[in-house]
């Protein structure tokens, strides 16, 4: 009876996963199809659930690849990649070291400190945008500041991006801590009795064991940075410092000025341009993710 029921249940599994999956994908399919429209046709015709343009155009996709007339897409792309790589690198490093500290080292107030950090991670950040702007603008000795007043501080410089990287990644630390606690401490001791120092223990013995959870941390950080438009939009002005999402924000907001015809197909295509690299990042890492999360065996 079991054997008989097995196959239909698998078929059902395929059916549901694929069927619902396609529904989930639908907005993206719509975006891709809309990308083939010209501005005029998209504005003046009635758009159906599966919009097929009468006069399909590749202009939007060309603009995405070759750079549109007004936008230095290559620069935005480069900035997005650099920023994502930088933040991901630091997230991996800080999560791993932080996880090690809270999982292995023993010192007074450790649990309390960890709890405090964990709690701060959960609070809303909207309120911090204006204070952050003020802090950046008043950054001492930068941008013509005397001590706290005067110039632009670090606004509109690369420091806006660099300063964020080395900060502790608390959720990552939490996950590494959980994962490390499943590694028997004998491993550390064996390594030490073999003469390995902390440095070797950390990076040659413990780190390779944590690769799956590192993949998870890397991808969440990479995606978060890749999609973040607030930091570049708010704290920088120069075109040379913009990233893809912030450039799109500008583009769509300038196009919303009165009298301008909103170029939906163009905005949609640029959005796809942001999404596709993010998807590639995910495809690359996805098989590690489940493994990594399972390894943490989050107890709780």
């Amino acid at each position: 009876m079991f054997a008989k029921r097995f196959k239909p249940s698998r078929a059902l599994g395929h059916l549901v996963l694929l069927g619902v999956g396609l529904v989930l994908l639908y907005p993206l399919i719509f975006m891709i199809m809309a990308g083939f429209f010209t501005k005029q046709e998209f504005t003046s015709s009635v758009i159906h659930a599966f919009p097929v343009p009468k006069e399909p155009t590749l202009d939007n996709f060309k603009a995405l690849l070759a750079g549109s007339t007004d936008a230095a897409v290559t620069v935005y792309f480069r900035n997005s990649v650099l920023r994502t790589a930088y933040n991901t690198f630091w997230a991996i490093l800080t999560s791993f070291l932080g996880g090690y500290v809270f999982a292995r080292l023993r010192f007074k107030g450790r649990d309390q400190l960890f709890l405090l950090l964990l709690a701060t991670q959960m609070i809303p950040t909207t309120i911090a945008i204006i204070p952050t702007y003020l802090e950046f603008a008043r950054f001492p000795f930068f941008g013509g500041n005397h001590v706290f007043t005067g110039g632009k501080g670090i606004l509109d410089t690369w420091w806006v991006y660099l300063i964020g990287g080395p900060g502790i990644n608390i959720m990552g630390t939490f996950l590494v801590k959980q994962s490390l606690e499943k590694v028997p401490i004998e491993l550390d001791e064996a390594a030490k009795s073999d003469g390995a120092g902390t440095f070797r223990l950390l990076f040659q013995i413990l780190f390779p064991l944590q690769l799956p959870i590192m993949a998870f941390i890397a991808i969440t950080t990479a995606l978060g940075t890749w999609n973040d438009f607030i930091t570049p939009f708010f704290y920088t002005n120069s075109d040379s410092l913009q990233t893809l999402p912030s450039a799109i924000t500008r583009l769509s907001s300038v196009m919303a000025s009165p009298g301008a015809v909103i170029n939906y197909p163009m905005i949609i295509t640029l959005s796809l341009g942001v999404t596709i690299p993010a998807l590639l990042i995910f495809f690359f890492f996805q098989k590690y993710i489940v493994q990594g999360l399972a390894n943490t065996g989050i107890k709780g």
Partner: peptide, 16 residues
């Protein structure tokens, strides 16, 4: 930018 994002940036700019 224009509209809401512009207002936000100008607000922050005036403050600083």
């Amino acid at each position: 930018g224009w509209g809401e994002p512009l207002i936000q940036k100008e607000t922050a700019g005036f403050l600083a």
